[in-house]
Nucleic acid binder design. Sequence first.
DNA 1: ACCTGAACACCGTTCAAGT
DNA 2: ACCTGAACACCGTTCAAGT
Lengths: 203, 203
Amino acid sequence: MDVKKYHHGDLKNALIQAGIEVLTHEGLAGLSLRKVAKQAGVSHAAPYAHFTDKQAIIAAISTEGYRKLYQCLSDAIDKAKGNPHKQLIETAWAYIQFARQESGCFKIMFSGVLEQEKDYPEFVEVSQRTFALVVDIVKACQKAKILREETPQLLGVVIWGQVHGVISLIFLGQIPHMVLDRYPMREMLIRTMNQLTLVNYSE
Amino acid sequence: MDVKKYHHGDLKNALIQAGIEVLTHEGLAGLSLRKVAKQAGVSHAAPYAHFTDKQAIIAAISTEGYRKLYQCLSDAIDKAKGNPHKQLIETAWAYIQFARQESGCFKIMFSGVLEQEKDYPEFVEVSQRTFALVVDIVKACQKAKILREETPQLLGVVIWGQVHGVISLIFLGQIPHMVLDRYPMREMLIRTMNQLTLVNYSE
DNA sequence: ACCTGAACACCGTTCAAGT
DNA sequence: ACCTGAACACCGTTCAAGT
């Protein structure tokens, strides 16, 4: 029945899920605390029992997004165990799939609406853990002579930046359709990554 | 004296400038139409004489940002005329300088708050013109054997994505300080670009 | 401890009215 | 044609009160 229970049990997480829901369907401009509260079935003041302000809930959604992203990238690495070149491609591919499938999270994570990330230690932690994952792949690829010798952290920035930049520009609608229509996303990725690697990847 | 004139002469542009001002000092979350109007010295309803809604003023600010970016990149290309490799590096450097110096514009251009870019033809036009600039440099670099043979448009996406992605991640605070402290921005850029080119650039 | 409802300042948008 | 002021629905945030 639709009897409303007094307390939610885990309102904090319910609010994060509700936030992702709102973001996915109404976009960045449509995200309001009051809508999130309504979506979770509580009064507009209830979120303040769990979050200090709107920035804090944005941080929590972004952190949850990073946890999902970390999981996606980890899975991709596991699936290509023992083959660094494949790990590189599949991890990049997983990043693109994450951006498409978890568009609500992706939008807010990299929009810049979260203004003081440093104030949210869980966000910083998972963000750094994700970067470390990329650096690990870089090291494996260097060992396999697939990437040049260069500080692994710097190469990590280059590769993450590469994939992130291209998918961001595409999502923002800044890449002419003429270019997008010529290559399926998967082919675009492989050609893109082949600009960075010493050996070409093909499938 | 502080006599208030009735009409502004060019309120439309004054509002765009005011918007950039607000963005620069108060960030994305602090941008409201009412603040922009106040900053321009008019009533909160006045913007509606020139823009249909908030999205339209965001589009106008983003378009103005792109015009500035286009100018920065053009200047960099001119300064390195006859040397494609230098053009590539200096244009990328100009992009980074733009992001730093026109941070208000940069924030909103690539934040995703502008939801229907396709509805703003001036925005689309200057965005495509900027991409064309990158493709031109790619072609010159290919002729000079500095970049591999590959569809110039695709390489344009790769290079723009590369520079855009790295600077975005840095601005978003997603790159560990450990990495940023090791390299000055200019050196990071050159090392980054050297991963893409066939010949190393040094200075 | 967790939530509600009223309250307040602020915001986007509309509209009748003023020059 | 360009702008104002009042109006309204919505938003972030606070707080006294309820279980």
